[in-house]
Computed example of a mutant assay.
Amino acid sequence: MYPENPAMAGAGRIHMPRSLKIIACALVAFVVMPIAKAADVEEWLMRINEAAASRSFVGNFVYVHDNQIEAMHVVRRIRNGMLQERLYALNGDAREVVRDEDRVWCFIPDRNLGVHDYRQSSESGFPRIMSEDLETLSRNYRFEMGGTARIAGRMAQQIRVMPADRFRYGYDLWADSETGLLLRSDLVNDSGQSVEQYMFVNIEIDGEISDHELESVTSRENLVWYGMDLPNMSAEVESPVWRVQSLPAGYRLSKHIRRMNPMKLEEEEHMVFTDGLSSVSIFIKAPGEKQSGMAGLSRMGAVHAYRETVADHWITVMGEVPARTVEHLAKAIVHQP
């Protein structure tokens, strides 16, 4: 999950994904298997969906990007259909994220900072794929069964997801053979290189998780909090004046809301475009105080962002997609009042 708000990028960039992100790869022996039938791929994708929606777990995973390794501890509980989650950075700057179905709290004690926001999606992890979506996805991706490997002490099945063009990354997924839970996920560029990787190094699935394990270990005191008193003001935009004139094949508008930025208490529009796997967000801010950051392209791991002004508004396009995708959308957005 890329950050849902660019103001949260530094705080919330310890997301679980849709991508989960290799320690001692030399120890992992791959067993090559024949390419399986489409029905086998569909069955595994459905298992991944079901596991993401129903499995609780506690574990540690590594996130590898830009020649860096970040180690994270995660506690995730699903009880009576309700999701609660806590992530805690084990190396580097102290960071912690606590979230439930509706809200997110980000703790950044090294900066004396805390951010509270409302979740714009109820999902965590790999995007939900329904069986009726597979035909649509097959126009932009090719799916193959891969081999098996041992990850975090458990056997895992590989599923390769290969893009049809250069406007989206590929995925190299490894799902737990017993439960279907994702144990490793790589985003792969058009050269076949991993640009971002999540991988569990240990995990306990479906054990009992206490309320205490979901409480933040970082004290709320002495932090300057943003957004704590901010009501959930997101609303669908009924008469949009912003449009993207041309989209890469397969992408469609899935959400267009108006919301408050918890860091600056400024109203912004948020558009989300997806092809069913890859997603791109566009944030639109009205003229106001001088905006921080520079125009043009930037990158962190697999996340690319492109900023520029259109009709005196700041436009930020970002997502776990190639640079050409965010630039394409930034150049295609128009203001039509």
Rank of each mutant, 00 (worst) to 15 (best):
A53Y: 05
R142Y: 06
P6M: 08
G207A: 08
N60S: 09
N80A: 15
L253H: 10
V64W: 12
V321N: 11
H256N: 12
P240Y: 02
A26I: 13
S234Q: 10
A71Y: 14
S177G: 07
A39Y: 06
D117Y: 05
R258V: 05
L277E: 03
L253V: 09
E308I: 09
P6K: 02
A9Q: 10
A9L: 01
N67H: 03
V310I: 13
S210A: 03
P109L: 01
F167C: 10
V237I: 01
R18Q: 11
E266W: 00
V74A: 13
G147P: 09
G146V: 02
K264N: 12
A53T: 09
E70I: 09
E50K: 13
S234W: 01
V188H: 05
N222K: 14
E327K: 14
S278A: 14
S254H: 05
F30P: 06
I14Q: 14
A330F: 13
M1C: 12
A36W: 01
S122I: 00
A94C: 06
W174Q: 03
A156K: 08
S234C: 07
V334D: 12
L134N: 04
D172G: 10
Y141D: 04
R111E: 02
E266I: 04
M72I: 12
D117P: 00
L223F: 12
F57N: 02
C106V: 08
T309Y: 12
K255C: 00
N232H: 01
A36N: 06
M300L: 07
L223M: 09
L173F: 05
V58K: 15
I203Q: 04
L90P: 05
R111I: 00
V32D: 08
A39H: 05
H73L: 14
N189W: 01
D186I: 05
P163W: 00
G114I: 12
R76Y: 03
R160S: 13
S19F: 12
R154F: 07
F143K: 13
I282Q: 02
R111M: 09
K331R: 13
A11I: 00
V321L: 14
I151V: 14
A164F: 02
H313F: 01
A175D: 11
M199E: 14
M16G: 09
F30N: 13
K264G: 14
V62K: 15
P163F: 01
D190W: 08
N189M: 00
D66R: 10
L253W: 07
V75Y: 06
E269P: 09
L134D: 08
I108D: 11
M145G: 15
